[in-house]
Simulated scan of single mutants.
Amino acid sequence: MTKKVVLVIEYDGSEYKGWQAQKYGVPSVQENLEKALAVIANHPVKVICAGRTDSGVHASAQVVHFETDVERNDRAWTLGVNTYLPSDIRVVAARYVADDFHARFSALSRRYRYVIYQSAFCPAILANGVTWTYKTLNVEKMKEAAAVFLGTHDFSSFRAIGCQANTPIRTILNFDVQQIGQYIVLDVRANAFLHHMIRNFAGVLMSIGAGEKPVSWAKVTLDAKDRTKGGITAPPTGLYFVDVQYPDSFNVPVCQLGPHFLPYVEESDYDVSS
């Protein structure tokens, strides 16, 4: 009898050309995971994820599902699968779920964190895990600008030119800018995201934080509905897929919000809409 399994995956995307399996010889997270799962399942496995990530982008809680007709315990789907994965990809939770669960289509919202490291010197540690800036950023101005993006809007100014989404309309449920030591964290939750959307948000907010643009530029950019008016696309190195929300009835494993080098902070503690 075929059953459905949900996994929560953590990975460092530095060495991969994104989540999605591609042509032979192009390293991807999906391909590595499917190969490892096939060993434990003893049959080919196809996984579906909650949200694809681009080249160089990381995840602390990517959610995937797959179908299998074999019985394995949670330990096999976690520690067993990890034995066959490279060290920069790990399964951190596993559970059998209802047949009607779908990692992508059952999701109510997705959440990303963009981590900026503010220092006079480029870091040697976590060089591929943060976006470095030598500029002094005004967090309060960035937070004020971020509030403009809350709600449902046409985000054409923040989608990549090659974005294949059917519509640029998205709903931002929470957008915070928080300083934690030398880290500045953009924390964004939405029903769904456009290609490069978070990185384009980051590019605009970093320009505002550095004093290169006024706070009002965020709304001007949003209203323009034109990607050419949206400033730079920030690097992928600081971007993390950190959470997916599902109906409680599916009982999907919930992991502590990452990335793990940041302290845990409840979303309600810094919701800019409050």
Rank of each mutant, 00 (worst) to 15 (best):
M206I: 05
L150Q: 10
D271T: 10
V29N: 04
A127G: 10
T68E: 10
A218G: 08
A145Y: 08
D69Y: 13
E140N: 14
V148S: 09
S274Y: 10
V92N: 05
H58L: 07
R90I: 14
Y114H: 00
N138P: 09
G162Q: 03
P27M: 02
Q245T: 14
A160P: 07
D176F: 00
F261V: 07
V115I: 07
A145G: 06
Q62R: 01
Q182M: 12
S119W: 06
F105V: 03
L126R: 11
L33P: 04
C122T: 14
R110G: 02
Y11L: 07
K141Y: 12
E267Q: 14
V47E: 00
V177P: 01
K219L: 14
R199N: 01
A41G: 06
T133R: 04
E34H: 06
I116E: 02
A165Y: 00
F105I: 09
M142D: 01
V91F: 06
V242G: 01
S60H: 04
D74K: 14
F261M: 07
F201W: 03
F149T: 00
T221E: 00
D176K: 01
P236G: 10
S60W: 01
I232C: 12
A21L: 15
S87I: 12
R113H: 03
I232Y: 06
Q256D: 14
R52S: 08
V6P: 05
D248P: 10
S156C: 08
Q164L: 13
I116V: 15
P253Y: 01
A36D: 08
G162V: 04
R113T: 02
T237H: 14
A127V: 13
Y183E: 02
G162Y: 04
A93N: 01
S274Q: 15
